[in-house]
Amino acid sequence: MAAEPRDRPPPEVRCQGLAKTYGDAGGALMALSTTDLVFEAGRTTALVGPSGCGKSTLLRLIAGLESPTTGSVEIGGESPLAVRKRAGLAMAFQDASLLPWRTVRGNVALALQLGRMPSDGEAVDRLISLVGLDGFEDSRPSQLSGGMRQRAAIARCLVTEPGLLLLDEPFGAVDELTRLRLNQDLPRLWEKRGTTTILVTHSITEAVLLSDRVLVFSARPGRVVADIPVALPRPRSRDSLEHPRFRMITDQVSAALMEGWQADAAQ
């Protein structure tokens, strides 16, 4: 199988009539109600919403890790499976999901092995260096702090140079300060390439800081209640937090979240 041509343009992601219901007729649980969405090529979209609103489900449907009850997903005109098979996407999880018996280098190289790509020690070391883990190449995950593990996980995602990046609360398990630093350091690595990125997060600040667009979900069954563009200049940094428009957008997102919550409570 041919490796992903590294200069392939980032794909557009289309979700049509997508819905997911768990369980059988007796105890059905609707995780995601029918959704039509387009994620533009090369842009970063943040998904926010209360726990259990189906935003992680949407991410897993896009990755093809779960099959939709109805509807379909197309990534640059291809099925998720076809994209996965050529390592065209990469996903980061809430816990870094590093294999404890592999070193940092081994964990990053794992993506190349899983993606059936030639081993490329230089690329692996370059990415480890880019995420700021110089000197920890041979450390095992148990010897790293939580933030360092997430950096290693991001390096693993990027080493295959995927067109689509799916981030499922990648910084959810680290402290606020570390999160802020990761938010500043890491996005540059994929923003430069213009990778299509979909990010699930609990943090409104993070959502606004990293994305070009924020989708706000209501509680179960999940549906999009607000679609808020983030027109902040790039590259973003800590200074972006001070930008007047930043506060405006975060307030908008908060208001949409509250609305969705109240609508639920009223039902």
Binding site: R84, M91, S97
Partner: peptide, 12 residues
């Protein structure tokens, strides 16, 4: 953990 298997599956 399930995410290790998800990781494998994200590469098809």
């Amino acid at each position: 953990p399930a995410s290790w298997f998800d990781l494998v599956r994200t590469y098809g």
